[in-house]
Design a protein around this nucleic acid. Sequence first.
DNA 1: ATACCCTCCGTACCACGATACAGAGTCAAG
DNA 2: CTTGACTCTGTATCGTGGTACGGAGGGTAT
Lengths: 132, 132
Amino acid sequence: MANLTIARLAASAGVGVETVRFYQRKGLMAVPASSGAVRHYDETDVQRLRFIRAAQRAGFSLKEIAELLALDASDDRARVQALTRTRLAALDAEMAELAAAKAMLAGLLSECTSGKAGPCPIIATFTGKACH
Amino acid sequence: MANLTIARLAASAGVGVETVRFYQRKGLMAVPASSGAVRHYDETDVQRLRFIRAAQRAGFSLKEIAELLALDASDDRARVQALTRTRLAALDAEMAELAAAKAMLAGLLSECTSGKAGPCPIIATFTGKACH
DNA sequence: ATACCCTCCGTACCACGATACAGAGTCAAG
DNA sequence: CTTGACTCTGTATCGTGGTACGGAGGGTAT
């Protein structure tokens, strides 16, 4: 067993000590019932912390991650799949929004840099009532 | 001049009254120095409120929008273009992250639904250290 | 002129994900 | 046995973009 302090646990996942404590308060990580005054952590804690960060990178909120962690124990694949599908749909929606914003800004930027006279087209677009 | 109350101004941009007041507190919109006790708004206020919402849809933060509004007056196209390019780069980065998350989740979902035995691959991925 | 809704103003609160800090305790090295 | 780094606990604060509410006063439709 690794027998890590909280600082070393945090470092193993590239987060700060305060962040680990924050996850403990949120119920995402257990606070080990240490015998002494200073708590010690092992590989399972490292795994769990990495799980949280990996799921976060996939766009899950801490609330959803809490559910995933619970499902890790119960092995309810249907529910995990449902959460994943919901997340995929949300990702699609976010990507569509970003793509629309990007297309608009890219168009305006090339228009603006092409050096025509008159008001800046970027500003003009935001000022006008119709947004493309 | 339209001579709108705050509720009608808000409605003209599809936001709530409280949101307009919030923008006023943030300095994004001026509070008209009304003679009486109830303030009145005109087309220029409607324009400005629409500007804010349009720029928000393009992904600008309220802080950036404040700068864009200042630039609207000063007509500094170079600075507007710089802000736009920064925003475009940020959009690209966000889209890349979302695409990576989507690819990972989509792959895991099909793996998970294909009904193999053993632990759920989605959970297993978050648990494991490498997130390919 | 009297309901009745709207406005004004200040303040508080929400979600989200942290981050900071104070004050006391603990632990290992020199 | 002291020093210095680390830990524990609790509470407060941050940034982002709002939303809610209470009490006092304004404006208007009937």
